[in-house]
Design a protein around this nucleic acid. Structure first.
Length: 480
DNA sequence: TGAAATGTTGGGGCG
DNA sequence: ACGCCCCAACATTTC
């Protein structure tokens, strides 16, 4: 008869180390079906830039599984239905997965779990992607945290749920007749005709092994200066782990332990480690918010924003999304996003503030653009961060906190080298003028080969006027 | 994880 | 020597 077989359903946890669902399944079952389902439904389906990453991540996972004697089964369709099919076809007695926290994912997992249990199939759901589950950390009054700083204090005191990361299973035994699998090439996750991802592979290497290398490199080279350099888009001051984390090629738990161990050995004070881990913890905080505010992706947390006078301005949005606003730091960020699938976090705040406040375009427009163009698109981070910038989120920046993109640019890209990299038409301008080329003299512009309105746009809005307009709009909704 | 407006202080030029 | 003004530089408040 059939052996004691289990299914491990991979989702945003494309790794073999520190994978609680896999470890539990491997410990209890002779044979494991390792399943990934490409599900194109819902607001958080992988597409665009993230689909490019998914392709690389799955290739890496497949190779790592095969190196351990297993097989990765690839299927396409509604996730729950496909898992059900594979259970029925294989006679598997149990299904293991690491939890999701978005409302659609929770609903699907809950229904599937009930269905399978009713038919005598065991289901085990695990925490594979958070330091602590959203229901684990409570305020002293028994509620969930809505403000980051106390959340972080609580999480830091608690530490991650698993004291040490789980080992990679040495041997993965797949049934002799494994389930039918799609061919990854047939999914065509990478672009062909206009290959907009040609720049991605120069910057990124998806996969679990590369995630670990990236972490190692960051710890050895940059974590010490992280508190100073993390806001500098012109430097390699950040870990650039975000896409690896978003696809679960590495867990926050692994990052926590490795960072602590490294800094114990190398750093007198724990300042850099603490600063870095507090940024990792923002992701946990975003999942905490997504879990407790399931409609964070569609509705403002602060209710007064329901009546905010957002503007419908497809022309301005088009210029923003393609990096043609005439504000150099904004255009540099949006072009970095388009060409590399990633944007420095400081610049994300600047371009988002510009969209929501200077252009008064609804944060949801930006959220969707980021979802399609970021390789690190994350359901919790993306929605929570956009609401944070817009001012409508929990613990959001006060609405009147409006960035001046020129000031931000001068402060965080002092030499202008970040702008020069992504807005080459301005490269010859002096550092003093590159942040606001409209203030340069006609001689300076001519010498730099810049013709405003011709080869680089004039600013599409006046920063001072739109700032006042945003404050007035906020005042309006607050009064209402 | 702001920016701008407004207020305060203190050094220096100058009559 | 003194008062006056100017204006950085810094601090506070306001949005």
């Amino acid at each position: 008869m059939t052996k004691n077989t289990a299914i491990v359903w991979f989702r945003n946890d494309l790794r073999l180390a520190d994978h609680p669902a896999l470890t539990a399944a491997a410990a209890a079952h002779e044979e494991i079906i390792l399943l990934y389902v490409l599900d194109e439904r819902g607001p958080f389906a992988r597409r665009g830039a993230a689909a490019w990453w998914l392709d690389g991540s799955l290739r890496s996972l497949r190779d790592d599984i095969e190196a351990r004697g297993g097989r990765l089964t690839l299927r396409r369709g509604p996730g729950g239905d496909i898992v059900r099919e594979v259970v029925d076809a294989s006679g598997a007695r149990a299904v293991y997965w690491n939890r999701r926290y978005d409302p659609g994912g929770i609903e699907e997992d809950t229904r599937l779990k009930a269905d399978l249990k009713a038919d005598g199939v065991d289901v085990h759901s695990c925490n594979g992607s958070l330091l602590r589950e959203p229901w684990e950390l409570e305020t002293t009054t028994g509620g969930f945290y809505k403000v980051y700083t106390p959340f972080w204090r609580s999480l830091r005191a608690a530490g991650p749920a698993r004291p040490t990361p789980l080992e990679t299973p040495q041997r993965l035994s797949t049934p002799g007749r494994p389930p039918r699998s799609d061919d990854l090439d047939d999914w065509r996750l990478t672009p062909a005709k206009p290959d907009w991802a040609s720049g991605f592979s120069k910057v990124w290497s998806p996969g679990e092994a590369n995630a670990l290398k990236r972490l190692e490199r960051f710890l050895n080279n940059a974590v010490g200066s992280y508190p100073d350099d993390r806001n500098r888009p012109d430097l390699e001051g950040t870990s650039r782990l975000s896409p690896h984390i978003a696809f679960g090629e590495i867990s926050p738990n692994q990052i926590w332990r490795a960072t602590m161990a490294h800094c114990d050995r190398h750093d007198r004070d724990s300042g850099p480690a603490d600063k870095f881990l507090s940024e990792i913890a923002w992701r946990d905080f975003a999942y905490n918010l997504l879990y407790h505010y399931p409609d964070i992706g569609v509705a403002p947390i602060k209710e007064e924003f329901a009546s905010f006078p957002w503007r419908d301005d497809s022309d301005a949005f088009a210029k923003w999304s393609r990096g043609r606003t005439g504000i150099p730091i904004v255009d540099a960020g949006m072009r970095q996003l388009w060409h590399t699938g990633w944007m420095h976090n400081r610049v994300r705040m600047i371009v988002a503030s510009f969209l929501c406040k200077n252009l008064l375009v609804h944060w949801g427009e930006g959220e969707r653009w980021f979802w399609d163009t970021l390789v690190d698109a994350d359901p919790a981070n993306n929605t929570a961060s956009w609401q944070w910038v817009a001012g409508s989120g929990a613990d959001a920046a006060p609405y009147f906190r409006i960035f001046n993109p020129v000031t931000q640019s001068q402060k965080f890209d002092p030499s202008g080298d970040y702008i020069r990299e992504f807005v080459p038409e301005l490269a010859k301008l002096q550092s003093k003028k590159i942040h606001e080329p409209w203030t340069a003299s006609s001689d300076e512009l001519r010498a730099a080969g810049v013709a405003l309105g011709k080869n680089y746009p004039l600013p599409i809005v006046d920063l001072g006027e739109t700032r006042k307009r945003a404050l007035a709009a906020y005042e309006e909704t607050r009064a209402a």
